[in-house]
Amino acid sequence: MRPFTVGLLATPKAVPELRLAVREHLGRPCPELQLCVTELLTNVITHVGEGTPVTLRISGRATRLRVELTDPDPQARPALRRAAATDESGRGLALLDAVTVRWGVARGDGTKTVWCEL
Protein backbone atom coordinates (compact mmCIF):
# COMPACT_ATOMS: atom_id res chain seq x y z
CA MET A 1 0.00 0.00 0.00
CA ARG A 2 1.29 3.46 -0.80
CA PRO A 3 1.47 5.79 2.21
CA PHE A 4 -1.33 8.27 2.78
CA THR A 5 -0.78 11.61 4.55
CA VAL A 6 -3.25 14.44 4.94
CA GLY A 7 -3.34 17.58 7.05
CA LEU A 8 -6.70 18.91 8.18
CA LEU A 9 -8.58 20.72 10.91
CA ALA A 10 -10.27 18.53 13.49
CA THR A 11 -13.95 19.34 13.03
CA PRO A 12 -17.09 17.18 13.12
CA LYS A 13 -17.55 17.76 9.37
CA ALA A 14 -14.05 16.41 8.71
CA VAL A 15 -14.83 12.99 10.25
CA PRO A 16 -16.98 11.52 7.44
CA GLU A 17 -14.86 13.29 4.82
CA LEU A 18 -11.72 11.66 6.20
CA ARG A 19 -13.37 8.22 6.33
CA LEU A 20 -14.29 8.60 2.66
CA ALA A 21 -10.78 9.78 1.72
CA VAL A 22 -9.27 6.73 3.45
CA ARG A 23 -11.69 4.40 1.68
CA GLU A 24 -10.90 6.00 -1.69
CA HIS A 25 -7.16 5.77 -1.04
CA LEU A 26 -7.44 2.05 -0.28
CA GLY A 27 -9.80 1.45 -3.19
CA ARG A 28 -12.07 -0.62 -0.97
CA PRO A 29 -13.92 -0.42 2.34
CA CYS A 30 -11.89 -1.18 5.44
CA PRO A 31 -14.30 -0.81 8.38
CA GLU A 32 -11.68 -1.33 11.10
CA LEU A 33 -9.34 1.27 9.63
CA GLN A 34 -12.17 3.73 9.09
CA LEU A 35 -13.30 3.19 12.71
CA CYS A 36 -9.78 3.91 14.00
CA VAL A 37 -9.52 7.10 11.95
CA THR A 38 -12.94 8.19 13.24
CA GLU A 39 -12.09 7.55 16.88
CA LEU A 40 -8.66 9.21 16.72
CA LEU A 41 -10.04 12.35 15.08
CA THR A 42 -13.05 12.48 17.40
CA ASN A 43 -10.74 12.28 20.43
CA VAL A 44 -8.84 15.33 19.21
CA ILE A 45 -12.09 17.25 18.69
CA THR A 46 -13.33 16.30 22.15
CA HIS A 47 -10.16 16.57 24.23
CA VAL A 48 -7.91 19.05 22.42
CA GLY A 49 -10.51 21.21 20.70
CA GLU A 50 -12.48 21.69 17.54
CA GLY A 51 -10.44 23.31 14.79
CA THR A 52 -7.13 21.84 15.98
CA PRO A 53 -4.74 21.23 13.06
CA VAL A 54 -3.84 17.53 12.77
CA THR A 55 -1.94 15.27 10.42
CA LEU A 56 -3.13 11.76 9.60
CA ARG A 57 -0.67 9.21 8.25
CA ILE A 58 -1.42 5.67 7.13
CA SER A 59 1.40 3.35 6.10
CA GLY A 60 2.23 -0.31 5.97
CA ARG A 61 1.31 -3.38 4.01
CA ALA A 62 -1.85 -5.37 3.48
CA THR A 63 -0.91 -7.57 6.45
CA ARG A 64 -0.27 -4.69 8.86
CA LEU A 65 -1.36 -1.07 8.64
CA ARG A 66 -0.17 1.73 10.90
CA VAL A 67 -2.35 4.77 11.52
CA GLU A 68 -0.94 7.91 13.18
CA LEU A 69 -2.76 11.09 14.09
CA THR A 70 -0.56 13.97 15.23
CA ASP A 71 -1.83 17.09 17.01
CA PRO A 72 -0.08 20.08 18.62
CA ASP A 73 -0.96 19.28 22.27
CA PRO A 74 1.65 17.02 23.89
CA GLN A 75 0.00 17.44 27.31
CA ALA A 76 -3.41 15.92 26.45
CA ARG A 77 -2.54 12.25 26.90
CA PRO A 78 -5.27 9.77 25.98
CA ALA A 79 -6.04 7.03 28.48
CA LEU A 80 -8.10 3.89 28.07
CA ARG A 81 -11.13 3.84 30.35
CA ARG A 82 -14.15 1.64 30.74
CA ALA A 83 -17.38 3.55 30.19
CA ALA A 84 -20.43 2.57 32.18
CA ALA A 85 -23.48 1.38 30.25
CA THR A 86 -25.18 4.73 30.91
CA ASP A 87 -22.22 6.90 29.81
CA GLU A 88 -22.78 8.79 26.56
CA SER A 89 -19.08 8.88 25.69
CA GLY A 90 -15.76 7.37 26.72
CA ARG A 91 -15.68 4.30 24.48
CA GLY A 92 -13.37 5.55 21.72
CA LEU A 93 -10.08 4.12 22.97
CA ALA A 94 -11.83 0.92 24.09
CA LEU A 95 -13.01 0.47 20.49
CA LEU A 96 -9.51 1.21 19.24
CA ASP A 97 -8.09 -1.31 21.72
CA ALA A 98 -10.59 -3.95 20.58
CA VAL A 99 -9.93 -3.71 16.83
CA THR A 100 -6.17 -3.08 16.75
CA VAL A 101 -3.13 -5.25 17.33
CA ARG A 102 -1.67 -2.50 19.51
CA TRP A 103 -1.83 1.26 20.00
CA GLY A 104 0.07 3.93 21.86
CA VAL A 105 1.05 7.56 22.25
CA ALA A 106 4.32 9.22 21.27
CA ARG A 107 5.26 12.76 22.28
CA GLY A 108 7.33 14.94 20.01
CA ASP A 109 8.62 18.47 20.26
CA GLY A 110 5.34 20.31 20.80
CA THR A 111 3.24 17.45 19.40
CA LYS A 112 1.55 14.23 20.34
CA THR A 113 0.93 11.29 18.01
CA VAL A 114 -1.62 8.64 18.83
CA TRP A 115 -0.97 5.57 16.71
CA CYS A 116 -2.41 2.14 16.17
CA GLU A 117 -1.65 -0.94 14.12
CA LEU A 118 -4.18 -3.16 12.40
Score class of each variant (00 low, 15 high):
Thr70Leu: 02
Pro29Phe: 08
Thr63Trp: 07
Ala98Met: 10
Thr52Asn: 10
Ala79Met: 03
Ser89Pro: 00
Trp103His: 13
Trp115Gly: 08
Ile45Arg: 06
Leu56Glu: 08
Asp87Thr: 08
Asp97His: 15
Ala83Asn: 04
Thr55Asn: 03
Leu35Ala: 15
Ala10Ser: 10
Leu9Arg: 15
Leu18Pro: 04
Met1Gly: 09
Ala79Asp: 00
Gly108Trp: 00
Cys36Leu: 13
Leu26Ala: 02
Met1Phe: 09
Thr55Val: 15
Glu17Val: 09
Glu17Ala: 15
Pro78His: 05
Gly27Arg: 02
Val48Thr: 12
Pro29Gln: 15
Arg23Ala: 14
Leu41Ser: 04
Thr63Ser: 15
Ala14Asn: 06
Thr11Arg: 14
Val67Gln: 01
Asp73Ile: 00
Val99Ala: 02
Arg19Ala: 13
Pro78Ser: 06
Glu50His: 06
Arg107Asp: 15
Leu65Ala: 03
Leu26Asp: 00
Leu33Trp: 09
Asp87Asn: 13
Leu20Ser: 14
Gly7Pro: 02
Ile45Thr: 08
Pro29Trp: 04
Ala10Leu: 07
Lys13Thr: 13
Cys30Gln: 05
Val6Lys: 10
Ala76Arg: 13
Arg81Ser: 14
Pro29Thr: 14
Gly108Phe: 01
Gly104Asp: 03
Gly110Gln: 05
Leu41His: 05
Pro12Leu: 12
Val15Glu: 11
Phe4His: 09
Ala84Arg: 14
Gln75Leu: 13
Glu88Phe: 09
Val48Gln: 02
Ala98Trp: 05
Val67Glu: 01
Gly104Asn: 01
Val48Lys: 04
Thr11Pro: 05
Cys30Trp: 11
Val105Ile: 05
Gly104Val: 07
Ala10Met: 09
Thr52Cys: 13
Pro31Tyr: 14
Asn43Arg: 11
Ala21Asp: 03
Ile58Cys: 09
Gly92Thr: 03
Pro29Gly: 11
Cys36Asn: 02
Thr5Gly: 00
Asp97Gly: 04
Glu32Arg: 11
Thr46Ile: 11
His47Ser: 11
Thr55Gln: 14
Trp103Val: 04
Leu9Ser: 10
Asp71Trp: 04
Thr52Pro: 07
Gly7Gln: 13
Gly7Lys: 10
